[in-house]
Design a protein around this nucleic acid. Structure first.
Lengths: 190, 190
DNA sequence: ACCTGAACACCGTTCAAGT
DNA sequence: ACCTGAACACCGTTCAAGT
């Protein structure tokens, strides 16, 4: 008679998946593990997500929205100088990526096939970068410059968190060198 | 009596895994699939590799050695100007990454945990980049500059092959903008 | 309308047995 | 020394049955 009432929610499922992801990597995000964390059984997850891929897309999108908030905050607190806003975006993104590296790995390059944030959530994360890029290089080159900045920050932190910088040296200094070089190089083409 | 003779080799197994990887992604590199391609059964693979992770490390290392050859060739054909050598490295890497995107995705950031080329093979791939970087910014900053260039090229092509550039625009032009900005920015700090 | 146990096909891995 | 079938634990997913 009384139909079974919901014992969880999409948001709770995504949150549980993010915890498992950050704790144990993508392999640790099993349907059974996620279900247990929200107090149900694996088959019930399919009432809310088509399959594991759809759940991971929701996770990636959730991460992108978080990043968008962080980056917008950074810009807001950086004052009016576009160059300083760019530095704030760069260090803000790196902090985000180092704090939650496995979440960040889902942001741009499909770790698993087709696991990427939705276009809408990606647009939220990209907004502050596009605004700052436009202030530096103008509207015509804004998209290209934003892609350049994102690619560098994403590539660098991905390599850093994966342990790919194995020949010593000061990694943070290298990041700053890259940002400085990009900033002066982009300002020169403005 | 006559002990079973080898029906395959490490190199053949790695080659088979690379074909499956490029055709169907990392999930398509199953032990059974690889084994079938070299004419044996899955359990026999464990005579040559500790586990699937070790096989993937061998694949990633094989890719890194290929990349090292490609990049060294690019530099050799670019003449003596370090700035032009840098451009050649950048376009050579992008061609490599677009031609074999799933192989390239194994090069720097662990798609799966701990799947990265061996330090030795990574050093081979890094050598041409370090040499060109040193010619541009000098020995003290060479390592940092090489990391910056690698991070940008890797990050950009990873995003490109994952389809992360979804808001239109000329993607190749953005890549060139990034390389140009980095080149002029690094030359300015030399 | 949501939840569940049982079942299916698939996967990585181990191991005793073969040659 | 290498190869194999059988077995194990695990996974994503489906589905009929429950409330």
């Amino acid at each position: 008679m009384s139909p079974a009432r919901a014992q969880t929610s999409q948001a709770a499922i995504v949150a549980a998946a993010r915890v498992l992801l950050e704790d144990g990597g993508l392999d640790a995000v099993s349907m059974a593990g996620v279900a247990e964390r929200v107090g149900i059984r694996a088959p019930s997850l399919y009432k809310r997500f088509d399959d594991r891929g759809a759940l991971l897309v929701a996770v990636a999108s959730d991460v992108a929205l978080d990043l968008g908030r962080v980056l917008a905050d950074e810009v807001a607190r950086a004052g009016d100088d576009p160059g300083r806003q760019l530095e704030a975006l760069a260090s803000g993104y790196r902090s985000f990526a180092l704090a939650t590296p496995r979440a960040a790995s889902l942001l741009f390059a499909g770790v698993a096939p087709d696991v990427t944030p939705t276009p809408e959530s990606q647009a939220v994360a990209a907004r502050p970068v596009l605004d700052v890029a436009e202030a530096i290089v103008g509207p015509v080159r804004a998209l290209a410059a934003a892609r350049v900045l994102t690619a560098f920050a994403y590539g660098f932190t991905s390599m850093e968190t994966a342990g790919a910088f194995r020949f010593g040296g000061d990694v943070e200094e290298a990041y700053r060198l890259g940002i400085t070089a990009l900033r002066s190089g982009l300002e020169a083409t403005a």
